[in-house]
Design a binder for these strands. Structure first.
Lengths: 187, 187
DNA sequence: AATTAAAGAAACAAAATGTTCTTTATAAAA
DNA sequence: TTTTATAAAGAACATTTTGTTTCTTTAATT
């Protein structure tokens, strides 16, 4: 793919990311993005149909990265999280949120954090929650399986919200402990 | 207060509510609201500074109603939910969501449901979660109290999301059972 | 019936949107 | 290198939305 396209795409993502940590999604205009990314108007619309589309693609980028390596699919060689060891998996995801070159925490901290966590939850529903639950579901208590999946995802989103609200004053390891404590009885 | 103001305010709320069940918040323009509510432009701006302001006030209206009667504060004479009996409390809230003349389910079902559940969570944090937890916190496991409060609120929001996603194909009683099953070990 | 306050209509500048066209720069292929 | 093709920039445009203003009409309170 053309290097120019790559550069433009990156510039837009980065500019958008910077804006998102300083103002809310709904208040960000295409004009702002154009100015911040320093690209032409035409160029923006050549890459993204709308601001909403940009948002979606950014989320894909962000979260597919978070869930990538080892975590998704069976491609993993890391036996520590192949079966069991949910603790490791959770810590892993949280570090991924922290780590990144991209601006995930910045974006999540901004006014539109909730919006992103909405997308995040979709990924959790597909990639994390089902791996925490056995195929079994919980305690045979007659609770729908997808209710439990949803519960775990919601709880994880809640965890992240709490973490951010408390200005990251906890390590991923501590958080994993908390999470397991409230979720373990279910899985 | 002047009846005219009341009528206008109601007209705007209702029109806005109708719009919200058919299109997403971000795509709704002030012009749409004006047309739908059938009030003058000037009138709208006399009542609400911005669309965001309208949103906030609508949420206040909606959720303060849901949490009102008996539920909030000590003003309750309903001993069934004064202490304990969380089951009753949850069922109660869920019925309130269903019941209403207002369009809560419609709004929650619309594209901006998440947005509203964000506001909803704030109310839960203040009014529901702390009453489910004793003053004690959980199992003495060294987990921050406000983490647990947040966990419960997140879980409840998740429950409502799941309920809506499944087109309300569960009774509040059933949902309360599910909720207690996943949350009881914590409280 | 007189006073007060709200609603409605019309018009406005400013900003944002999405599109079209031309020119310039950059990458890939020969 | 030279050629070819394609992406980006820039400018201009009609539309739409926004938030305000001015003025008139209508309804409530006293």
């Amino acid at each position: 793919m053309d290097r120019r396209q790559q550069k433009t795409r990156t510039a837009i993502f980065e500019g958008f990311g910077r804006l998102l940590s300083s103002k809310s999604y709904s208040k960000i205009t295409v004009q702002n993005i154009i100015d911040e990314a320093n690209v032409g108007r035409t160029t923006f619309y050549a890459h993204f149909e709308t601001k909403d589309q940009l948002l979606k693609e950014l989320c894909s980028d962000l979260f597919s990265h978070v869930f990538s390596e080892n975590l998704s699919a069976e491609s993993t060689h890391d036996f520590s999280m192949r079966t069991g060891n949910p603790q490791a998996m959770i810590t892993h995801i949280l570090y991924h949120l922290l780590d990144n070159k991209q601006n995930i925490i910045g974006i999540l901290t901004g006014e539109s954090g909730e919006l992103f966590l909405g997308f995040f939850k979709q990924y959790l529903n597909e990639l994390m929650a089902p791996r925490l639950l056995g195929d079994t579901g919980s305690c045979g208590k007659n609770i729908p399986y997808d209710f439990l999946v949803n519960h775990i995802s919601s709880s994880f989103v809640g965890l992240v919200q709490w973490w951010i609200k408390n200005r990251l004053k906890k390590t991923p390891e501590e958080l994993a402990d908390y999470f397991m404590a409230v979720i373990e009885p279910v899985v």
